[in-house]
């Protein structure tokens, strides 16, 4: 004990000796939860400070780029009045995302398990993904009216592709030896699917959900831009028309918050399901 104590007071003694405290501090900052959040805060504060500085130094007019302070004030005062729009956008995103899961995962299972379905559906899926879906927004409005339906459809359309692709990749990429093992034990394809294929594909599926949920939010906002009179997309469009840039920026900040929260909800699911597995090697 005495030895340890005396040594710790002696270090650092030379340039080659590891300097303990700064190394540990760096370790905490890089790895620890508090450190991670701290780093995020540092970068956010830096960006806001630069933003504020730019607006003041170049005296940029409020209707071009509002200063962070005025955005914050608008956020504080208007969030109540646009709370129904926040709810609308969140709901459209979640319903669209759920629809994409309900359609996408069974579709992916069908594609992964049948050559015929793969050849029939895959080219169509790739083609439909190649079409800029924003171009379809007016068509959806013509079909489904100005309510929430076209926005939900838009959200689902955007989220569908990454969910289907990553589920197919996960299901097809299962180690053939695992499938052989199932066949050797005389397990039918449904049992092999339940015990081996699906759990093996889970990391890939959750990866697709992460991409999908962010795209669903994009889809909902695009739908709101094109038609209707609710949602944060509509708020942004109106604010821009009325030169209330600080309101537009407040809505954008809210969208960022929604996107991040939804992303981390899936991330949480991932941790719950996959915490026992080997880290990506």
């Amino acid at each position: 004990m005495a030895d340890v104590l005396s040594r710790s007071t002696e270090t650092p003694s030379g340039p080659d000796e590891p300097v303990e405290t700064p190394t540990r501090l760096r370790h905490v900052i890089q790895r620890g939860w508090v450190g991670q959040v701290g780093l995020v805060l540092v970068s956010v504060v830096a960006i806001v400070a630069i933003w504020e500085l730019v607006v003041v130094v170049f005296s940029i007019p409020k209707f071009t780029l509002p200063a962070p302070v005025s955005v914050a004030s608008t956020l504080f005062h208007s969030t109540g009045s646009i709370s129904s729009d926040i709810a609308v956008t969140v709901e459209e995103t979640i319903v669209g995302f759920a629809a994409a899961i309900v359609v996408g995962i069974p579709l992916a299972v069908a594609i992964a398990s049948s050559r015929l379905v793969e050849r029939l559906v895959y080219p169509m899926l790739v083609t439909s993904n190649a079409v800029p879906k924003i171009a379809l927004a007016p068509v959806f409005i013509a079909w489904f009216g100005l309510g929430s339906v076209p926005r939900v459809v838009m959200a689902a359309m955007l989220a569908l592709f990454p969910i289907v692709i990553s589920t197919v990749v996960g299901l097809v990429g299962v180690d053939p030896a695992l499938i052989l093992l199932g066949r050797a034990a005389d397990a039918g394809s449904s049992r092999i699917f339940r015990l081996i294929r699906l759990p093996a594909a889970l990391p890939s599926i959750l990866g697709g959900l992460k991409v999908g949920v962010t795209l669903a939010l994009t889809g909902a906002v695009v739908g709101e831009f094109v038609g209707g009179n609710t949602g944060l997309g509509y708020v942004i469009e109106q604010a821009q028309g009325n030169l209330r840039m600080s309101l537009a920026f407040a809505a954008i900040v809210l969208l960022a918050v929604i996107g991040v929260v939804l992303f981390y909800l899936i991330d949480l699911l991932e941790h719950l399901f996959l915490h026992n597995r080997r880290k990506a090697s």
């Binding site: 180690d175 030896a177 695992l178 052989l180 093992l181 199932g182 050797a184 034990a185 005389d186 397990a187 049992r191 092999i192 015990l195 081996i196 759990p199 093996a200 889970l202 996959l274 026992n276 597995r277 080997r278």
Partner: peptide, 25 residues
């Protein structure tokens, strides 16, 4: 049967991996 790669399921414990034989059957 056992193959070159051990083909253990990463999401199952050691005992559950052994019991996979019963589950598959």
């Amino acid at each position: 049967i056992a193959f070159q790669r051990d083909s253990l399921l990463e999401w199952r414990t050691v005992l559950d991996n052994v019991l996979l034989q019963a589950d598959l059957r």
